[in-house]
Amino acid sequence: MKMPYVAGAALLQAAALLSACNSRSDEPLSATNTATPAPSTATSPSVPVSGPKRVVLAFGDSLYAGYGLQRGQSLPDAIQARLRGQGIDATVVNAGVSGDTSADGRRRLAYTLDRMKTKPDLVMLGLGGNDVLRQVDPAETRANMAAMLDELDRRGIPVILTGMMAPPNLGPDFVNRFNAIWPDLARQHKAALDPFILQGVLGQRQLMLGDGVHPNATGVSHIADRVAPLVAKQLAD
């Protein structure tokens, strides 16, 4: 898969956003920050919800937390709505924290799992974007992601990795080492993989917030359309 090109100026703009993301505040931005009117992710089920209750933990950064969106418009919300629309009795728990790097996620994963009332049937693991913005050595990102997958393996929890990719202007060495992390770890840990969480959305102004880094509600809907079937398949296996 080809990585959508991100201009150097956009990367610098994204890096400047870290100060906002690191506040760890998930308060929604003004609606004027969205490029298009923000549609609700809630939909009426097309078929009755039935079957066993399923719990999915969405563990990641601002792309899961719903940075800049109104309450109920995050990616976990959108995926939950699509699963229930298929009749799957699933609750998607949003454990996204804006600004988290893979190291931050590694520190809080076990604590998050221990606090859950019910062991999740599936974990969506989505980190790495802030590692790119900080230009963390890909070896460190790989080690952190591997440690989280090891923890989930020990607990017997299946995983969907939602991958991240580095912009070409970081140079071929960084890009090649970084981009290989997710497919490599997915193979090693027998995890399902969505190769690039922002595929088809990044670089599309009508699908992104004004920062050019985070999807707006319409962009989230596009991502959920792609990822929700993968979640449904994993829950059915």
Rank of each mutant, 00 (worst) to 15 (best):
G85R: 01
T118Y: 13
A143I: 09
I79L: 04
R115Q: 05
D137F: 12
G156L: 14
D100M: 12
A78L: 04
F174K: 03
T112L: 13
G126E: 05
R82H: 02
I160S: 06
A95P: 01
R107M: 07
R82F: 05
F178Y: 01
S102K: 08
M165V: 07
P138S: 12
L125Y: 08
I79T: 00
R108L: 08
P172G: 12
D100K: 07
P76W: 06
L83I: 10
Q86M: 10
G129M: 03
P167A: 10
D100T: 09
G85H: 07
I157P: 02
V97Q: 07
L109T: 04
A166H: 01
A103V: 00
T118N: 09
R155N: 10
R154G: 12
T141N: 04
Y111L: 07
G72K: 01
S74M: 11
A146S: 15
G96F: 13
L75Y: 00
T118R: 12
G72V: 11
N130L: 09
E140Q: 14
Q70F: 09
R115V: 02
T162G: 13
M145V: 10
G126W: 02
D153L: 15
D131T: 10
T118P: 02
G105V: 01
R115P: 00
A143M: 14
L127N: 05
S98V: 15
G105P: 06
A81C: 09
I157M: 09
D137Y: 10
M116G: 13
L149P: 00
G128M: 07
V136G: 06
A110M: 05
T118H: 12
G99Y: 03
D153T: 15
I157H: 09
R108S: 12
L170P: 00
M165D: 02
A147D: 05
P168V: 14
F174V: 03
P158L: 14
D100R: 00
G85F: 03
M148R: 04
P138R: 06
A95M: 04
V93S: 07
A65Q: 12
R107A: 12
P172K: 06
A95I: 06
N130I: 08
L122T: 06
F178E: 02
L75C: 02
N130H: 08
D114W: 11
A110D: 13
A146Y: 03
F178P: 00
E151S: 07
M148D: 04
D114G: 10
G96R: 03
S74W: 04
Q80C: 11
A166Q: 01
T101V: 14
I157N: 06
K119T: 09
A139N: 07
